[in-house]
């Protein structure tokens, strides 16, 4: 029955229905899931690891794990939180691997982070005195990279991926209160990093 479900019908399915349909043998279901989440996921991993090729590879690995372990998925959880959790674990593993591989690089980065206080104009949006937008984004990325993982992950999931506090809590296995306090702290640290020393 599921085999005969066409692509157009499958696209209208919700995430949980897609997983069920995939397990029943619908050949389009997994493809639709991939296409639904691929950009968000690659972007999320890219913002964490900072390397596009690696982000694509880890994104692919995330979906392979979803495919392999689809039968373990429980519909009481949201699919998005499950897939973000897999991606987060893979990205963190990669970050840890890198840290182990290159201590000198880590030290260099550490000292750069300590020394840099990244300025950002906040006295109104005057184009004359504002930094170039691309430059600002690079500064934000640098500031984000300098945050401890526990703050960075919460910030990325909530502010960039636009997950709710509850969803972030599910992904990271934290209470909503902890998510809010970490987010608060992350924003505070970012403001400090991005604020020009007067």
């Amino acid at each position: 029955m599921a085999q005969s479900t066409g692509l157009e019908t499958t696209i209208s399915f919700g995430d949980n229905a897609l997983i069920s349909s995939h397990l029943e043998g619908n050949e389009y279901a997994f493809q639709v899931l991939v296409e639904r989440y691929q950009d968000k996921l690659v972007n999320y991993i890219y913002n964490l690891v900072g390397d596009y090729e690696q982000a694509v590879d880890l994104g692919q690995e995330t979906f392979i794990r979803v495919f392999k372990h689809a039968h373990r998925y429980h519909a009481k959880y949201q699919f998005s939180t499950w897939i973000y959790r897999i991606a987060t674990n893979l990205a963190l593993d990669e970050i840890r691997r890198r840290k182990r591989r290159s201590r000198s690089f880590t030290y260099r980065l550490f000292f750069q982070q300590e020394e840099q206080d990244i300025p950002l104009e906040h006295d109104g949006p005057s184009p004359e005195c504002s930094l170039d937008r691309k430059e600002q984004i690079q500064m934000l990325q640098a500031a984000l990279n300098s945050l401890p993982d526990k703050y960075r992950l919460v910030f990325m999931l909530r502010e960039v991926q636009e997950l709710s506090h509850e969803e972030v809590g599910e992904v990271l296995k934290l209470s909503v209160g902890t998510v809010k306090s970490r987010l608060h702290r992350a924003k505070k640290l970012l403001r400090q990093k991005l604020t020009r020393v007067r």
């Binding site: 691929q38 950009d39 996921l41 690659v42 972007n43 890219y46 913002n47 596009y52 982000a55 694509v56 994104g59 950002l120 104009e121 906040h122 006295d123 109104g124 937008r133 600002q136 984004i137 934000l140 990325q141 502010e159 960039v160 991926q161 636009e162 924003k187 970012l190 403001r191 991005l194 604020t195």
Partner: peptide, 20 residues
């Protein structure tokens, strides 16, 4: 203002990378 600026920059991060 600072939070608003941060929100605008976050918007840019949302489209930082797309899947090939």
């Amino acid at each position: 203002d600072e939070v608003a600026t941060l929100e605008q920059l976050n918007q840019s991060l949302r489209g930082a990378a797309r899947a090939p």
